[in-house]
Design a binder for these strands. Structure first.
Length: 194
DNA sequence: AGTTCGATCGCCT
DNA sequence: GGCGATCGAACTG
């Protein structure tokens, strides 16, 4: 029940994995949260992907086997975590953008003292990595083996999925590749028009 | 070797 | 709604 999702879950089309990651649990650092928002970054016709111009030292793990973490550092301050998708040798990644805190909320508060409300703990890609303690040092780790893991929730309820363009990108800005749980208040930019 | 700018956040108005 | 912080990756020359 608490076993990490198997590699075959990740070895599928990126947009499908992005949708199906919603409602799953991301756990690390004595804390966990329900994934409520994701974005897909595609191998083809996606100018916004870090790997849009091919493999570089930074994007190497995205071309490797699925089910691994791609963690990058941005704006001189923030770490963001992606899940590598598609078959080994094919690029594809899903950015985890927001979590609904589930367990270890005290640990999250200690790591994010500026968050006033529980809604602010992990409602953004830089915030959730800070809340869980995920850093670029974890780039390339195998998510099917832990300690960073994604698993099924204990109690799964039904939900609707909303689809919008991705946040904060210039290229391929029109593609509908952002997915979130409709009505969930832990999603980033809740008031953005869908 | 130098420059540009980004898959962000938090504080300011 | 706007902007400064802060720095590495990748592109230019």
């Amino acid at each position: 029940m608490n076993r990490p999702l198997p590699r075959r879950f990740f070895a599928r089309p990126t947009t499908l994995v992005a949708r199906e990651l919603l409602g799953k649990v991301l756990a690390f650092g004595g804390a966990s949260g329900i994934i409520v928002e994701t974005e897909a970054y595609l191998d083809k016709d996606d100018g916004a992907a870090h790997f849009a111009r091919g493999m570089t030292p930074r994007t190497e793990v995205i071309y490797g086997p699925p089910g691994h973490a791609y963690v990058y550092f941005i704006y001189g301050m923030y770490d963001c975590v992606n899940v590598v998708t598609e078959a080994d040798g094919v690029a594809g990644a899903v950015l985890i953008r927001a979590l609904e805190p589930l367990a270890g909320i005290e640990a999250m508060r200690r790591r994010r003292p500026t968050a006033r409300r529980d809604e602010d703990l992990a409602n953004g890609p830089g915030k959730l990595t800070r809340a869980l303690g995920i850093k670029v040092a974890h780039n390339g780790v195998d998510l099917t083996k832990g300690p960073i893991a994604i698993h099924q929730p204990q109690h799964a309820g039904p939900f609707e999925i909303a689809v919008t363009p991705r946040i904060g990108i210039r290229k391929s800005a029109d593609l509908p590749l952002r997915f979130f749980i409709k009505g969930n208040r832990f999603v980033s930019r809740v008031k953005m028009k869908v």
